[in-house]
Nucleic acid binder design. Structure first.
Length: 574
DNA sequence: GCCGTTTTCGGCCCGACTGTTTTCAGTCG
């Protein structure tokens, strides 16, 4: 029973309790406990005796968790499952429909799934219930309609593209004084549901009207004096956008409020409470003086609570407030610290530019070095290189380095880790490379033990420097393969292997939480690479840096910040 | 169910918006 499984059971319990009309705070307590387990450094199984020490876990939840650990199930949950129709929780996914509504519909009209709900709404059975009316009924029908074709979560780079198009529009509205991105996109979360902006203006109604009339708008979800919610279509990318309208005096507190995360905001409010104050998007209210303090800048808002500026990427309730209080926030890595990309493909395999073009593009970014790492021979779909082709490529690299392009090109390869953990090139070839990346591209379905052993075996090869995209996930498309990350991190530590943070917005692998864990518990160093398949691919580095920051990484944790000499030293593994 | 520099009871983050209501409940972020 791992932490993830325990989290899933606790959350299911919370969902079902909520649906059966249970006290909302009780539900919240289980959700909070689930969160604590999720963020726990050690496997919960190993600390069964001291569960009550964890914040948010008391006697009740502790015994629930113990039951899960010992029996693998939870009687309370099984009971709720018996009482409630199995498809009822699915209805929670409908926008605008919450647990209270679902519970009432179930109790009064015996609605148990989406089909029955649609039928009841169409037959106008819902409007007669107390607290319901024709509009609510209509909303339910629309929610079901939109459910299948509403905007889904988007990859970060897609959301960024939409955001920048909308930002340009906002910049054209005369009454707007200041614009800032907020919400999860400002925190660089790996996928984005909708885009938040905070805008300063003295004419909110006028501004709201102009925003609602932008050419990209395909739906107006809501429009008030403080907020416009729209759905936009930017070159086929459909996303929800919320624009919050405040005065420039309120901008600082509003920006913090709408940047979140939700959990971070709760901690901020609790902190304000210690001073006897109340925090809202409009400022900090002091009941003693009946005054609301306002803040033009976010930093001033934090300062009022005796906190330094906390970078948005850290605002996730992972200990950042505690560290900020002590003045011990990490000095997060920045884009300007980055000296070169160590994972790039060319025309030799499945890239779309030549070695020279890739090198010159890297130079144009201000890089000092770049590693060419095309695929290895068995990966036929990506035109992996035979041994002979590798030698050909090296001749070209030698030639270019001799010509002197103003950037050093390193000889490398992204070598497949075969199903049994052996590598796709002989050691004789690997040992001549400046750096060797190893990665899994096949046989994703292996069980955890096999997969873990497979990757560790590759790390044990004396010539392997880097494991690329270590968990193999594809965001919004494919879960990571089964692998024991603790064993992986331990092996990386013992063999001196660097784990990659793959910056491609479909991957971002390792993710933020694993980076933090690997750094804090195993003291690992990392490499951030874009896995560029074209010159434009280098641009994704911003997502790699942002994810590293979310993982609390500093300059010293990332070998791409090293000078060429320092880099060569750490790559000379043996 | 959790928690305590307001400490073992009575709170639990706060406000906007919507739809149902003549004062509020549900949902969302």
């Amino acid at each position: 029973m791992n932490n993830k499984q325990i989290v899933a059971i606790l959350n299911q319990l919370a969902d079902l309790m909520e649906l059966s009309g249970e006290n909302a705070f009780k539900v919240q307590a289980y959700r909070r406990a689930a969160r604590t387990v999720e963020n726990s450094r050690t496997p919960i199984v190993e600390m069964s005796d001291e569960l009550e020490k964890l914040s948010g876990i008391g006697k009740g939840t502790a015994s629930v968790i113990r039951e899960i650990i010992e029996t693998g199930r939870l009687a309370q949950l099984d009971e709720l499952r018996q009482q409630l129709p199995p498809e009822l929780p699915d209805l929670l996914a409908l926008p605008g429909i919450g647990p209270k509504t679902i519970y009432t519909l179930y109790k009064k009209l015996h609605i148990t799934n989406m089909v029955e709900l649609k039928q009841a709404a169409k037959q106008e059975k819902i409007r007669s219930l107390a607290g319901f009316g024709p509009k609510k009924e209509q909303k339910i029908l629309e929610a079901i309609e939109q459910f299948s074709n509403r905007p889904k979560r988007a990859h970060l780079h897609v959301a960024m593209a939409v955001a920048s198009a909308i930002r340009k529009r906002l910049e054209g509205i005369a009454e707007i004084e200041k614009i800032e991105l907020a919400g999860s996109i400002r925190r660089y979360k790996e996928t984005i549901k909708d885009i938040d902006f905070v805008v300063a203006t003295d004419h909110p109604v006028k501004v709201a009207e102009q925003i609602a009339n932008l050419p990209e708008v395909i739906q107006i979800v809501g429009q008030g004096e403080t907020k416009v919610s729209i759905v936009v279509d930017v070159e086929g990318m459909v996303m929800g956008v919320d624009v919050r309208l405040v005065t420039s005096d309120q901008f600082g507190s509003a920006l913090s409020h709408f940047t979140g995360s939700k959990e971070f905001n709760i901690l901020i409010r609790q902190r304000a409470k210690q001073y006897g104050w109340k925090v809202s998007e409009y400022g900090i209210y002091d009941p003693d003086t009946d005054q609301t303090m306002t803040f033009k800048d976010e930093a001033d808002f934090f300062a009022q609570l005796e906190l330094p500026f906390i970078p948005p990427e850290l605002r996730e309730d992972r200990g950042e407030i505690e560290k900020a209080e002590l003045g011990a926030l990490p000095a997060l890595i920045q884009l300007r610290d980055y000296r070169g990309d160590l994972h790039a493909h060319t025309l030799y395999s499945d890239g779309s530019h030549s070695i020279k073009d890739m090198a010159l593009a890297a130079k144009a970014k201000g890089y000092e070095y770049i590693a060419i790492t095309d695929h290895s021979q068995s990966l036929k779909v990506a035109s992996g290189l035979t041994v002979d082709e590798v030698y050909e490529q090296w001749a070209e690299i030698d030639q270019l380095n001799q010509e002197g392009l103003g950037i050093t090109i390193l000889k490398g390869a992204e070598v497949d880790i075969l199903a049994d953990g052996t590598l796709d090139y002989p050691d004789e070839l690997l040992k001549q490379m400046d750096l060797v990346i190893a990665s899994v591209h096949t046989q994703f379905k292996q069980d955890e033990e096999t997969m873990t052993r497979r990757i560790i075996k590759a790390m044990e090869n004396p010539y392997v420097n880097i494991i690329a995209h270590p968990t193999g996930r594809l965001l919004l498309r494919r879960d990571s393969y089964e692998v024991n990350v603790d064993q992986l991190f331990k092996a990386a530590q013992e063999t001196g292997t660097f784990l990659e943070l793959n910056a491609h917005p479909h991957r971002l692998d390792l993710n933020d939480q694993l980076l933090k864990k690997a750094k804090e518990e195993y003291g690992l160093k990392f490499t951030i690479n874009t896995d560029a398949h074209s010159a434009e691919g280098y641009d994704y580095i911003i997502y790699g840096i942002a994810t590293a920051r979310r993982g609390w990484l500093e300059k010293k944790d990332v070998i791409n910040t090293y000078t060429l000499d320092q880099l060569r030293t750490v790559l000379a593994k043996n």
